[in-house]
Design a protein around this nucleic acid. Structure first.
Length: 567
RNA sequence: CGGAAUGUAGCUCAGGUUGGUAGAGCGCACGGUUCGGGACCGUGAGGUCGCAGGUUCGAGUCCUGUCAUUCCGACCA
């Protein structure tokens, strides 16, 4: 491609609306432009990158035995009412009405559609297993779009769905997809980590892993072990239970006045105790019913864990009014003996000399011991791990990282197939429910995740596999016939060898061209300069800055080798 | 949903407190000099000052409303 003809404008200055570096570079390097909040246009360079990513995804999906389909964007709301997820997704769905006043939605995902399709088409065990996938635009009216493609309202995603006879089949499909994902991210050239995760809104039964690109721009917190390979999303991460401490020396409880202490911090200050000694009670509404969580003051409730433990659909914090109504106490003065169903965090046992809200108004009891001074009933791990907690696998120390979720694989089980009646007859004529898995991969998000990881002060540094072009040819002075001819000759030779070349044939000053080349970040650059007349050019590697002077033949040979080492 | 900031030329921003007919740098067009890391000189094009209403002789500037964009937060008792 001749750059003089390319639909590309780079930006010298950082766009005011972009905060995150990868977002800035997407705009500055002319990969995309914003249309409206969370919605972007991909320009030729950006589209080429996305295309390559999706091509790699296709190849690996096909290799793993999955078959590509294309499913509708527009879906009847009724489908979502059947699965019950109309409510779960709620305002996250873009809704529209057709001319017959029928309620429709723009698909935020496709479990409903694919399951109803499979329900119609699959009836016999002979037709299973099957894995279907598609690459499609998805729509989610996010409460807060952010950071360009990292969280958009319209974005591209590959989603695959597996349909199996039984659990063993699901395990095979899951493993095949997991391995395909590893190959995909390896081929793309991004550093990633597969972490244990919670199934979240999509729901389901059984294992699930998220593929995370480690980056401070990420929205997820990952707890990783510093001595083994354990890694999990904070929503899922479980540490080892803290040791149950010896409290035999703790004196008898004593009530002290603590008016106006609404928070743990207040108590720490007023009573001069550690936050870890305080035993707090947090009141929730779980499917409409009050439930209290009781844990140490320095621990945080993990709402995902609590929700899973309770087996409820919705879980939200109670309002102060609800707390008062149900417990007769204001927020901050509710103790474990509040009369509500209380779930204790298992690490409550690590408290030896605790503080709890007293029965006396505006007071707390000190020198309290769990089990001795109040009964500890229903107990579970319902808190977030903290840095330094013991790794569940090896006992090592957990550390936190930020990550961008680029892929998610999970075992759905029969959640959707049951609702949609996706069943088959086995060899005995018995009707059985199909077992499903689902496997998402955010292709547009990957573009930015890669940039987040692959850039320097001058611009993007594309991995070869997804670079918009392989090589950037920069003639320093287009007015010099020798340089001009050399650049053209290289351009033709490389293209005839299957190399994707961007030729900067613009009549610009060298500085401008070099700056643009660094910003755009093609992996290799050929500078055609003064020595062109002697048949010598420079080959520069974007990632390392390494420069070598080569003859044209050497340059072509090296580039062909670098672009496609296997050839 | 709550909080904050911002909306003036293609981009980055001044101007606003003190109301008086619109600015800079970069980019763009043309001419010239330059040509290995975002050149220089000259000329020029380009703006319903987000939108609506109000105050005023007069509003980019003051008031009210509204829309948009970005950031932070979304409740830990």
């Amino acid at each position: 491609m001749r750059q003089s003809r390319l639909f590309l404008t780079t930006l010298r200055e950082v766009p005011a609306d972009a905060e995150v570096i990868s977002h800035q570079l997407m705009l500055r390097a002319g990969l995309m432009r914003q249309l409206t909040s969370g919605v972007y246009e991909l320009l030729p360079l950006g589209w080429r990158v996305l295309y390559k990513i999706e091509q790699i995804v296709r190849e690996e999906m096909d290799r793993a035995g999955a078959q590509e389909v294309l499913l509708p964007t527009i879906q009847p709301l009724e489908l979502w009412e059947r699965s019950g997820r109309s409510e779960d997704y709620g305002p996250l769905m873009f809704r529209l009405t057709d001319r017959h006043e029928r309620a429709m939605v723009l698909g935020p995902t496709h479990e409903e559609v694919i399951t109803s399709l499979v329900q119609q088409e699959i009836h016999s065990y002979r037709q299973l297993p099957v894995i279907l996938y598609q690459i499609q635009t998805k729509f989610r009216d996010e409460p807060r779009p952010r950071a360009g493609l990292l969280r958009g309202r319209e974005f591209r995603m590959k989603d695959a769905y597996s349909f199996d006879l039984d659990e063993a089949g699901l395990d095979r499909s899951y493993r095949a997809m997991f391995e395909a994902y590893c190959r995909i991210f390896d081929r793309i050239g991004v550093r990633y980590r597969a972490v244990d995760a919670d199934p979240g809104a999509i729901g389901g039964e059984g294992g699930t892993h998220e593929f995370m690109v480690l980056s401070d721009a990420g929205e997820d917190t990952i707890a990783g072990c510093t001595s083994c390979d354990y890694a999990a999303n904070i929503e899922k991460a479980a540490g080892q239970a803290l040791p149950r401490a010896d409290a035999t020396a703790t004196p008898a409880p004593q009530t002290v006045p603590t008016p106006g202490t609404r928070t743990i911090e207040d108590l720490v200050r007023v009573l001069n105790v550690d936050a870890g000694q305080i035993i707090k009670v947090v009141v929730y509404v779980a499917d409409g019913q009050p439930v209290a969580a009781c844990l140490r003051g320095d621990h945080e409730v993990n709402e995902v864990k609590l929700k899973n433990h309770l087996g409820v659909r919705t879980l939200e914090l109670a309002t102060p009014e609800q707390v008062l109504q149900w417990t007769g106490k204001p927020v901050g003065f509710v103790g474990p003996q509040c009369g509500l169903r209380v779930v204790f965090d298992r690490d409550i046992w690590s408290v030896t000399d605790g503080v709890v809200a007293s029965d006396t108004p505006d007071a707390h009891d000190i020198h309290v011991v769990p089990g001795r001074d109040f009964p500890v009933g229903e107990t579970a791990d319902i808190r977030n791990v903290r840095e330094g907690d013991a790794c569940p696998k090896c006992g090592g120390s957990l550390r936190f990282y930020r990550g961008i979720e680029v892929g998610h694989v999970f075992k759905l089980g029969t959640k959707y197939s049951k609702v949609f009646g996706a069943v088959y007859q086995d060899e005995n004529g018995q009707e059985r429910t199909i077992i499903m898995g689902c496997y998402g991969l955010g292709t547009t998000r990957v573009i930015q995740a890669v940039i987040e990881q692959c850039h320097d002060a001058d611009g993007i540094i594309w991995p070869m596999a997804i670079a918009p072009y392989h090589v950037h040819i920069v003639p320093v002075n287009t007015a010099d016939p020798a340089q001009q001819q050399t650049a053209e000759a290289l351009y033709e030779q490389l293209r005839s060898r299957g190399v994707e070349v961007l030729l900067d044939d613009r009549d610009e000053r060298p500085g401008v061209k070099f700056k643009d080349a660094d910003l755009i970040g093609l992996p290799l650059r050929i500078t055609v300069g003064r020595k062109a007349g002697d048949g010598v050019v420079e080959l520069k590697e974007r990632a390392t800055g390494q420069v070598s002077e080569l003859t044209l033949e050497q340059a072509v040979a090296q580039i062909v080798e670098r672009v496609n080492p296997s050839r």
